[in-house]
Design a protein around this nucleic acid. Structure first.
Lengths: 143, 143
DNA sequence: CTAAGCCTTACAGCAAGAGGAAGGTCAAGA
DNA sequence: TCTTGACCTTCCTCTTGCTGTAAGGCTTAG
């Protein structure tokens, strides 16, 4: 099948498939007589694997590792497990961080008088140099 | 004061300050006789404003809007409120999405036998083309 | 014969800076 | 006075993960 069919089945775009090939994340596919790329069932599974790994937040380097394990019949499942649980922790940390950001945003939203007057607690708070000092001291002390 | 002092006080890097100037997010600062950029108290507040806005997840275009409101004594606080509550919603949506990703990752981690054998439920699941069909149908139906 | 709809390669550009080269300036110490 | 180190300047390239576009070739239907 041609690249657009492979794209449809895998959920990646044709552009993305060619890009993965260009950075050697994917190996060169077979070519039909006219030079068109030709994909088969196993290729589609690989493409799906990459799409899902990317959706889970693995970057290209990590996808390379995962793909190596996928292709390796002698892999140890413990290695896969490690990569995935590391990612889980990373996502958890990101969620916590975003949660703090959300809470701060919510407190800004609550403090603003939200009318036609120029006075605005949000503006005041954003421009306040002190908003940074504490957290900077904290991170410095952390080290 | 010179740029590195302004950087320290604002929490931005000197690189970033120059970059903001190059994209005209910041106006040209005064220059000392030797050509060095020279910053004063009001500049520091502006820099802090930008640092905080970026930390809250506003992109450069949004920072431009916010900065316009900051500099405008005739602003209506309602406009600021709108921008910030939109961002709050955006962050909320992002958190929900990441939450789903985390749950899926956690289920993968739980399903893996995590040992020296090659059999791995994670690998199988990632390569499974069906994992995509439902969500794709959903998004298509949504339109 | 032509038009649409595929396919190919190759180059440019996006955000939001970080890193580094090459050179000018300034203040302190030998 | 000379040097050394820490600043500062501009300019250029690199990053990540693609997406857009140009210019051209193949295929199939009317």
């Amino acid at each position: 099948m041609n690249i657009s069919e492979a794209a449809k089945l895998s959920g990646l775009s044709a552009k993305t498939i060619r890009y993965y090939e260009s950075i050697e994340l994917l190996s060169q596919p077979r070519r039909a007589g006219n030079g068109y790329r030709s994909y088969h069932h196993g290729d589609i599974k690989t493409l799906c694997f990459l799409r899902q790994a990317r959706q889970f937040g693995f970057n290209i380097a990590q996808c390379r590792l995962l793909l190596g394990l996928y292709k390796n019949p002698q892999r140890r499942s413990g290695e896969v497990h490690q990569l995935v649980s590391d990612k889980l922790e990373e996502v958890d940390a990101h969620i916590r961080e975003l949660g703090e950001t959300r809470d701060l945003l919510a407190s800004l939203v609550g403090a603003c008088s939200n009318n036609d007057e120029p006075d605005c607690a949000i503006i005041d708070s954003l421009a306040d140099p002190r908003e940074q000092v504490e957290s900077q001291c904290l991170t410095e002390n952390d080290r």
